[in-house]
Design a protein around this nucleic acid. Structure first.
Lengths: 238, 238
DNA sequence: TTGACATCATACTCGGGCGTATGCAACGAC
DNA sequence: GTCGTTGCATACGCCCGAGTATGATGTCAA
């Protein structure tokens, strides 16, 4: 199986989870990490994410992704089997970043609302830091919620979608705990989760890159988004 | 001007606002309204909205829109100049529906939070009723916030975008009034508006059509969305 | 009856884009 | 040195889709 695996390497994304984990060579030491995860892959992934985020999946051509960094299409196809694989790679990368940052916050000791605050803040900050990847990620989710064109694309996205649901599950879990303990305002859990996540993802929708935004202002922006999104859920806390 | 106006009629959307208004024949009486606004246009618009909502603008072909109702491409191009025009027509239609329902609520006598509740409820109900149009509408907004492909498409969308901003302005206005009167929790007005609208638009993102949903359940769903979205803004009221 | 117009269907052009095949340079292995 | 392998660039094949051109049918007026 594994579809021939003809050419060079072409990691197959459909099987393993975490794309970024697969990017690490087995013997690579974490320290240097300069060229370890494949510099070319990283660059292509970023360019792809930017294009997909701007124009959307269908409107983006592989040539465009390549041209964005002076590469050519051949170079892209040397590292990625298809446009769809490139897309899920970018989406998965964003999801991995979110899990890396948010999961630890969910596991810290503390009340439900405290943990929700930590998680939400980590979520928003991570998202703003690498906006293109996360825009692609949301695009992927939306594509499946609707009718994701071809069944092969659905196949590519299933694994990603599973992990994305698991990520939502983290929030759902903490919210659920908070509701039984009385920290969280009662209500329809599903709707609360969806609304909360949507609000936290706000920057992916209406955030327009301005030049004059240091990390200072971005942190403040994140704070405002978080407090706005959480106030309707945890009445206490500011 | 008016770009030649060669063929049959081809209302030019780029100039006038309200597409739906243009659909009404000048001498048409509001009563019947069966075939008045052009039955064919209405049907095409609905099919187009459904396709665009599912696959997105770029991934939708005009043939597909036509095939969706047994028409052919020629018939579509007889009523709409281009795919882009079809898109903005669908988006504008959704926007018109929102304005029709929400604007009156904003003008009713009452406190800021009361009016916000009415507006929000009208917004959500209208949106759920004609979901495809509103999904297209949001898609149009997102296309412009990012880099809307061709400059000609930007031209088509400018007028629509203007009216969309005006619609947001209604909420912004009421929120602003509420903030100075103390009814609305203080904060960054822009972020509050964006977050509120995003939450209210939630159904456009995560709503999956289930069979067993009567108007009864939909109304309840709307209520939950509204209360969830507004609770962080108007602390009082349920 | 005829001509003008509206309302479509069919057939075509043509550009763009995905994927592939092939060529070509560098580079270590032996 | 030569041979296989990696890391690309270039040049296609091929299909799909937007828009157009043309023709067929119906309808209404004169």
């Amino acid at each position: 199986m594994a579809s021939a695996a003809t050419g060079t390497h072409h990691r197959d994304t459909t099987g393993g989870s975490r794309v970024t984990a697969a990017l690490n060579e087995p013997s690579a030491d974490r320290s240097s990490a300069a060229t370890a995860p494949g510099k070319a892959e990283q660059a292509i992934l970023l360019a792809a994410a930017s294009c997909f985020a701007e124009r959307g999946f269908a409107a983006t051509s592989v040539d465009e992704v390549a041209r964005r960094m002076g590469y050519t299409k051949g170079r892209v196809y040397h590292y990625f089997r298809s446009k769809g694989e490139l897309f899920v790679a970018a989406a998965s990368y964003g999801l991995d970043r979110l899990c890396d940052e948010v999961e630890p916050q969910a596991k810290r000791a503390g009340g439900a609302c405290e943990r929700l605050n930590w998680m939400a803040r980590a979520h928003v900050l991570t998202q703003i830091r690498d906006l293109p990847y996360h825009r692609v990620m949301l695009q992927g989710v939306t594509m499946v919620v609707r009718g994701a064109t071809t069944p092969e694309e659905r196949t590519l996205l299933t694994n990603f979608l599973e992990r994305q649901r698991a990520y939502e599950g983290i929030f759902r879990e903490v919210l659920s705990v908070g509701m039984v303990s009385g920290d969280v305002r009662p209500g329809n859990l599903s709707i609360i989760v969806k609304t909360l996540l949507l609000s936290l993802n706000g920057s992916c929708f209406w955030f327009a890159e301005r030049e004059n935004q240091g990390p200072e202002e971005l942190g403040e922006l994140a704070d405002q988004i978080v407090s706005q999104a959480l106030f309707g859920i945890c009445e206490a806390k500011s």
